[in-house]
């Protein structure tokens, strides 16, 4: 199923992009920070729909043809990753400076400090926000239809135009999304439990 394929690729990569962008905006030099900020501002500023159309039609003006499926995947990664990066950036900023000082005091380089001390803690703090973005990504994956990807929404629309039973078909579609997201929620809860640091309550009971 195309929707699942799009999500299976774009979800994990968008998380990695989000972590990379968020980290770059805190620790990068002027150039790296500038590039990361530009990406985040752009793709949080553009409507997803417009991003997809620009990747698909805009790039073809320069002779670059991106197939519809990959247009959707790239667009979703950029958009979701940009949103997620802000959760990561906020989480990094919330880590007590003492963690950083302690890391440096045992001789860690800045990079080691970020990789082994700051990010493991920051990603845990950003986790709930990130899952929220991923659930939202499931929903706007339906926008892939605008560039002609035969994902669930597109298929349902075609189905409806054949039989003209909008209430039944779209209710079915809604339920399918609901089930998918429910499965994800359970999956995320599992990860959340595994990530929890004993002795520290990350979530309210």
């Amino acid at each position: 199923m195309v929707t699942l394929e799009i999500l299976a690729i774009s979800m994990p990569i968008s998380v990695l992009l989000g972590i990379a962008l968020g980290t770059a905006r805190v620790y990068g030099n002027v150039i790296i920070r500038g590039i990361a900020s530009a990406i985040v501002i752009t793709f949080r500023g553009f409507p997803v729909l417009v991003t997809l159309l620009l990747i698909f039609f805009g790039l073809s003006d320069f002779g670059i043809y991106v197939p519809p499926f990959w247009t959707a995947v790239i667009g979703f990664i950029l958009c979701s990753g940009s949103y997620q990066s802000e959760y990561v950036r906020g989480a990094i900023r919330s880590i007590d400076i003492g963690q950083s000082l302690a890391a440096r005091s045992i001789g860690m380089t800045k990079l080691q400090e970020v990789l082994y001390i700051i990010l493991p803690q920051a990603v845990r703090r950003a986790f709930l926000g990130i899952t929220n973005e991923l659930i939202y990504l499931v929903q706007y994956s339906s926008l892939a239809f605008v560039v002609g990807v035969p994902e669930m929404f597109a298929v349902t629309k075609t189905f409806n135009s054949l039989y003209f039973r909008p209430v039944e078909t779209f209710t079915t579609l809604a339920v399918v999304y609901l089930v998918m997201i429910s499965v994800l929620v359970v999956f995320f809860r599992g990860i959340e439990r595994r990530l929890a640091i004993p002795g520290i309550e990350l979530t309210t009971k």
Partner: peptide, 20 residues
């Protein structure tokens, strides 16, 4: 300095153990 800091043990007032 990173290398030299390995030779300087530093103990903080508020411990700063790595929480995770």
């Amino acid at each position: 300095i990173n290398k030299m800091r390995q030779k300087i043990g530093f103990v903080f007032q508020d411990f700063n153990l790595f929480h995770h």
